[in-house]
Design a protein around this nucleic acid. Structure first.
Length: 696
DNA sequence: CAAATTATGACTGGCACA
DNA sequence: TGTGCCAGTCATAATTTG
């Protein structure tokens, strides 16, 4: 049996009440789904808000709340004192305050805001988790008065009671609590007793969570089907009736209704609800939307500039870690046969190893002696992250810090096939007893493409190709080369050779006829990348080049994943993010690891088609679930999948490199770039899976 | 209008040299 | 330590073609 599912796109408006209630009246099932989503999120926030002292885990919460990861990191650096126990509420307020203060040249300096700028000394290796986890909720957050000060003190002084109340509502809504639930909690506990409100919200949430877990549907359900709606309503009476328990009466909401409408407009324009709220607070409720929009834009630009600045200061680097001089960095050249344990260093960046062989490649008989993973990095699930090795400065340092402080394994695929491909991999897989996918491909061009040997000039010394990219040279270039070569009868002059070699190396040309240096064909790239010939057949040529240029080198990734074979003899459940043409799936399949359930997330429709075709052609026995956008991978869906499959064994993906890659001269913007910032979705999803599976 | 083609030219790290 | 040169790089945007 083989089931292929294409889930419908669904929009989630977590904080948009008008929409929520509108949807509720039309589609009760949407309401229940919405509640499911929120309940999961709430529980997640609850866990992290009060108990977690893991920096990465804590970062994920503000990121979920709509803040930049960098901001979150800095906020934790600033607010965290003895460990990372600053409540997310405080961190959130700190970030808000920082954002609002941009205009006034507020900088996150060591001796800045006295309310938030606590001790700067953080021990990242703190062992306080257990102690803090065992603390009762009430003792973990301090007295209510202190928390109220945080609300008013970290940000701009509140101008009115209404504004304060509104901020409080927004604060909790921003944490993922439904607004009606917040209002009820405020009504029952008084608007100023923040701790009591939070406690009430957490109590409600736990009740919801228990109900949601009991009622978790085992099948993906189309959300727009009316018959399903009634079914959902009958299956989840509690959820629906709960909604009715929190009627929004005008009396309690009059102070925020206008503001919420304005926020809704701004959210529809693409701004974050938090930003909109801050802008309204700053500019006044009667400010035209255009002006509010300008205010937010200005704040965003100021914020970006500020945080870029931070990147290059010590503040960006965790405080207590020993600064390692560059010359002592872990990945400087080591004598062959001796490789030190690799740990993350807080130097400016990682240096790329030479030779780029990671923890070993098949041709090297030596191997890594030992590596110790940070405790937070351990599975389940196993995870595997990939991106280009040569990024703008500091990118791998940031990626590594998010991915639980694991040092990247930099590997060049020239040790696995006849083309170079320098990539960094961060994973928590075992590194011993790796083996290659059989048969191993040849490492030389002439072995891979024997027909080229006849035409290869003696003065072209290449025996391997450079990195296979997303587009190839022009036919005109081949023509120019032919013309230059034909000008001279015998051996071409030195300057011609030099020109031709430059072009051949730049465009990965291969000799397919006399004086004919041609661009490489999609089928040839498929072979080099470890796919079967015509793996990408069926989509247009341009898209084939693009998809192949973005793909995993299957033999390289397969070598790293091979350790899973003995660990999961019965097969694995796979969450594949940014799947592309399915390099991860192909690698596992070629290793002989059965694919039980595969959730494959890929935006490109042609790529999804390729994977679906491959799935059918290789007679896969498992289930393939295709999702288009990583943004659709919500906590609710992850919870459903985990419940259904019993968890994921591997979360794998290489997030977009567009804004990191050296070939991009236009928008090499780093991790903040339009595409490459999707890395934070990889982290978000991985962290959700980890967090849920630890409770499973 | 989609697909194919082409021109464009910015970073980075390694290396030699002073 | 600084400088200059060089090779290499999961690309983008404009233009042409069919």
């Amino acid at each position: 049996m083989q089931a292929i599912e294409d889930l419908p796109l669904e929009e989630e408006h977590v904080s948009d009440d008008s929409c929520a209630s509108k949807c509720a009246s039309n589609h009760p099932d949407l309401l229940s789904n919405q509640n499911n989503f929120l309940i999961d999120e709430e529980f997640y926030f609850f866990e992290n808000t009060q108990y977690s002292v893991d920096k990465d885990g804590t970062i994920s919460v503000p990121v979920e709340m709509g803040y930049q990861a960098e901001e979150a990191s800095i906020a934790i650096d600033r607010c965290g004192s003895a460990g990372l126990d600053t409540p997310v509420a405080e961190l959130s307020d700190f970030i808000c305050a920082a954002q609002m203060a941009k205009e006034a040249d507020f900088h996150l300096e060591k001796d800045g805001n006295s309310d938030c700028g606590k001790s700067l000394s953080i021990d990242w290796d703190t062992d306080d988790e257990l102690e803090i986890e065992s603390m009762p909720f009430s003792s973990g957050v301090g007295p209510a008065t202190a928390r109220q000060e945080v609300f008013a003190g970290c940000g701009e002084a509140s101008s009115s009671n209404g504004s304060q109340t509104s901020r409080t509502i927004h604060h909790f809504v921003g944490m993922g609590f439904p607004k009606d639930m917040v209002i009820r909690a405020m009504k029952e506990n008084g608007e100023r007793d923040i701790e009591a409100i939070l406690e009430a919200l957490l109590t409600y949430s736990q009740i919801h969570l228990m109900q949601a877990l009991e009622d978790l549907p085992l099948e993906e359900e189309p959300v727009s089907d009316d018959s399903c709606a009634s079914m959902c309503a009958s299956n989840h009476p509690d959820l629906l009736s709960d909604q009715n328990k929190f009627p929004i009466d005008e009396e309690n909401t009059h102070y925020s209704i206008d503001k919420d409408e304005t926020i809704s407009v701004l959210v529809e324009m693409g701004y974050q609800a938090e930003e909109a709220s801050i802008a309204i607070d700053r500019c006044g409720l009667d400010t035209p939307v255009a002006e509010l929009s300008d205010f937010i834009c200005a704040a965003q630009m100021a914020k970006e500039a500020d945080f870029h600045l931070e990147k290059h200061t010590e503040a960006y680097i965790p405080k207590d870690k020993r600064k390692i001089p560059r010359t002592e960095a872990w990945n400087l050249k080591q004598p062959r046969g001796i490789v030190k344990e690799q740990m993350v260093q807080d130097d400016e960046e990682f240096r790329l190893p030479n030779p780029m062989t990671g923890f070993g490649v098949p041709s090297e008989t030596w191997s890594i002696v030992h590596r110790t993973l940070p405790e937070a990095a351990l599975g389940p699930p196993y995870f595997y992250y990939e991106n280009v090795a040569m990024t703008p400065r500091g990118v791998w340092c940031t990626i590594s810090r998010f991915l639980y402080d694991i040092a990247p394994e930099f590997v060049d695929s020239k040790y696995f096939c006849a083309a170079a491909r320098k990539r960094g991999y961060i994973h928590n897989l075992p590194i011993h007893n790796r083996f290659q996918i059989l048969p191993p491909p040849p490492l030389k061009i002439h072995k891979t493409f024997p027909h080229t040997k006849k035409w290869w000039p003696s003065w072209d010394a290449r025996d391997q190709l450079n990195c296979l990219l997303t587009c190839v040279g022009s036919a005109k270039l081949t023509e120019r080369i032919r013309n230059k070569l034909e000008e001279s009868a015998g051996e071409p002059p030195v300057h011609v050779k030099k020109y031709v070699m430059e072009q051949c190396k730049r465009w990965n040309l291969i000799w397919v006829g006399k004086n004919n240096a041609a661009t490489i064909e999609p089928e040839e790239i498929e072979i080099l990348m470890g796919f079967s010939v015509n793996h990408t057949r069926g989509v247009n040529r341009t898209d084939r080049f693009k998809a192949l240029g973005n793909a995993f080198q299957v033999d390289t990734v397969g070598y790293h994943l091979s350790v899973l074979k003995s660990l999961f003899p019965g097969g694995i459940n796979l969450l594949s993010l940014f799947s592309g043409i399915g390099g991860a799936e192909v690698a596992l399949h070629r290793l002989g690891i059965p694919l039980k359930n595969v959730v494959s997330v890929e935006l490109s429709e042609p790529c999804r088609t390729i994977v679906r075709n491959w799935w059918e052609e290789t007679n896969q026995k498992g289930n393939l679930i295709h999702i288009a956008d990583v943004q659709e991978v919500t906590a609710e869906r992850i919870a459903q999948w985990i419940s259904r499959f019993g968890g994921f064994d591997l979360v794998i993906g290489g997030s977009p490199c567009n804004n990191l890659a050296g070939r991009n001269h236009v928008s090499r913007d780093g991790l903040e770039g339009k595409h490459s910032s999707l890395f934070f979705d990889y982290f978000r999803i991985l962290d959700l899976v980890k967090s849920m599976m630890s409770q499973y």
